[in-house]
Design a protein around this nucleic acid. Structure first.
Length: 275
DNA sequence: AACAAGACCTGCATGC
DNA sequence: TGCATGCAGGTCTTGT
């Protein structure tokens, strides 16, 4: 489900509602998501004040006033909903956060690929899910040189490499396809051949497409909804994702957008425009 | 060590 | 209508 722009949209939705608020009650309606919730999850959160709502790659990070950090990942189908938008408890509402201003936030995740954990702030960098993450794509630290360094020696395809969170953190299947289209590079190209100017072009394309998607509130395909219940609309701006057989927006080739499978994931591209 | 495939789950669209 | 199949925005684990 959510890639970096969707998670950032969620972060921006939660931030005004949660920052500075105290958690009066946290209910885990089942003991596990993808992994078991940490022992005493609800108790450890109850009474804590949320210092801020942050994001690293596709992870939401909520530092608390006891120096624990709540780590949350949306998996493929996770979403947060804020009161007062539709406040019955719904199917797959697995975790409920009650705030000291009367607000309520429900975490819903039908497929349960998401997870939550609590980690002392001092250990955060070493958390198993965060420790190996590569550069944040919208940061100044990420540029052509950084990407080229990450791709050096990689035998896999550039598409698969962009999904490797150690190379660049936060890109997923949609935006990998879209960025490669914008950069004019075939998703089948060997990752190690993307150096120099090509790497600069891909890095720039990643920044551009992620930035535009964030400004659109992310992409709402199946599961992504914003905390306020609104939909993102970047899906209308896709050039290739899900466009199998449709004309390529960049050239007049007859066959249109092709769909292939790489590392078990669908890839969409224009074989003529992307080399 | 690096890579591709499998696994984890539910819901939905499709086709018979 | 019912059932089987395949697919979905992620990432850990397994096997080569």
């Amino acid at each position: 489900m959510p890639e970096l722009p969707e998670v950032e949209t969620v972060r921006r939705g939660l931030e005004p509602a949660m920052t500075g608020r105290r958690l009066t009650r946290v209910v885990a309606r089942r003991p596990d998501l993808r992994f078991p919730l940490p022992d005493g999850f609800g108790q450890r959160l109850t009474g804590r004040r949320i210092k801020s709502v942050e994001r690293r790659a596709k992870f939401l990070l909520l530092p608390l006033d006891n120096d624990d950090v709540l780590i949350a990942h949306l998996g493929m189908s996770g979403s947060f909903r804020l009161s007062p938008a539709s406040f019955a408890t719904e199917k797959h509402d697995h975790v409920i956060f009650c705030l000291d201003d009367g607000g309520e936030i429900h975490f819903n995740d039908p497929r349960r690929f998401g997870f939550m954990d609590l980690c002392p702030a001092s250990d955060l960098a070493g958390h198993p899910m965060l420790a190996k993450l590569g550069p944040e794509p919208l940061s100044d630290a990420f540029d052509g040189a950084a990407l080229a360094a990450g791709l050096k020696g990689k035998k896999t395809s550039i598409k698969a490499a962009l999904l490797d969170q150690r190379v660049v953190a936060g890109v997923g299947n949609i935006y990998a396809c879209e960025a490669l289209f914008r950069a004019g590079l075939s998703p089948r190209r060997s990752a190690h051949t993307v150096q120099g100017g090509r790497a600069a072009k891909v890095a720039q394309a990643i920044k551009a497409v992620l930035g535009e998607a964030i400004r659109s509130g992310g992409s709402s395909l199946r599961d992504h909804i914003r905390p306020d219940g609104e939909l993102g609309y970047f899906q209308h701006a896709f050039d290739v994702y899900g466009k199998t057989g449709q004309p390529c927006p960049g050239c007049d080739c007859a066959d249109g957008i092709r769909q292939i499978v790489q590392s078990g994931r669908s890839t969409f591209y224009c074989p003529r425009r992307q080399r």
